[in-house]
Structure formats: structure tokens, C-alpha cells
Amino acid sequence: MNLRKIQRKVGSKMNVNVNITRCRRVEKMVKNKLAGNFVEEFAMLWDYADELRQKNLRSTIKMAVNRVIPESPPHFKPILGLDGCFLKGPSKGEMLSTCERDGNNQMYPIA
């Protein structure tokens, strides 16, 4: 959302007149907060994996990361995902799907 749109939305929803500088400041605060949330969530991935291993004993969970140098943040190696659901309605059954995401963030279905 651009700054003018934020300014108009605040004006119409809250009946407050704000200048572009204030909108820019708030936008920056929100982006910083979101970036912090990504870092916190990434750090919790290993806890999530441990919880899944405890609750779903037959699940296989492997996480492999690369680091350019030891101090750099980790980056995932290619990600392989498997998901399934039960189908209702006229086509009953179970549907399984897999996909892979490579280092260029491109997703590929796996047959």
C-alpha cells in the first residue's frame, strides 16, 4: 500500500488528518516489526519440528540449512513438502501432494 493510500484510509476510517511524514514513519515501524517477527518465527522452527516429532510419531521431519560463513543467518536447502487431505463429496478418498522449492524460491510439483 502506498503512502497516499495509507493517508486516505486513516483519514476516512479514523477521521484524522495525518501528513505523509507520519505515514512514512508508521510504515517503517510496521516493516521493522514484521522483519523481527520473521526472525523470531525462523528461530522457532526447530521447536515446531520437535513438537511434530512428538505428536506424529510416524512423521519424518528433516531440516537442512546452509550458512555462507558461521556468523551468517541460515538459509534452507531445497525444501520438499508432503501434504494430504481427505476428500468429501462424490469423490471420496485421500489426496496426497508433494512439492519442492529450490534455492531460487521456485516451486516444482513432484510426480
Rank of each mutant, 00 (worst) to 15 (best):
V10E: 04
D50F: 07
F86V: 15
V65F: 01
E40P: 06
V65T: 00
K31M: 14
F86I: 14
F38A: 09
V68H: 08
D50R: 05
L80H: 11
G36W: 04
W46Q: 12
S72H: 08
V16T: 13
K33C: 09
K31G: 11
T98N: 04
R53G: 08
G93W: 01
R67A: 08
S97F: 02
E100I: 12
I20P: 02
Q7R: 12
E27F: 14
F76K: 00
D102T: 02
T98D: 01
A43F: 03
R4V: 12
G93P: 02
N15Q: 11
N19A: 01
R22F: 09
F38L: 15
R24T: 05
N17Q: 07
K5Q: 10
Y48G: 09
K92T: 12
M95H: 13
A64S: 14
F38N: 09
N56W: 11
D102L: 00
Y108P: 03
C85P: 12
R67S: 03
G93N: 04
N19K: 05
L34D: 13
K5A: 05
I69R: 05
F76E: 00
L3D: 06
W46D: 13
K31T: 15
P109T: 10
A35I: 08
R25E: 14
L82E: 07
C99Y: 02
I20T: 01
E51Y: 13
M1P: 14
I20D: 00
M14W: 03
K31R: 12
V39E: 07
E41R: 09
L45Q: 04
M14Q: 03
M1E: 15
L87H: 04
V10I: 12
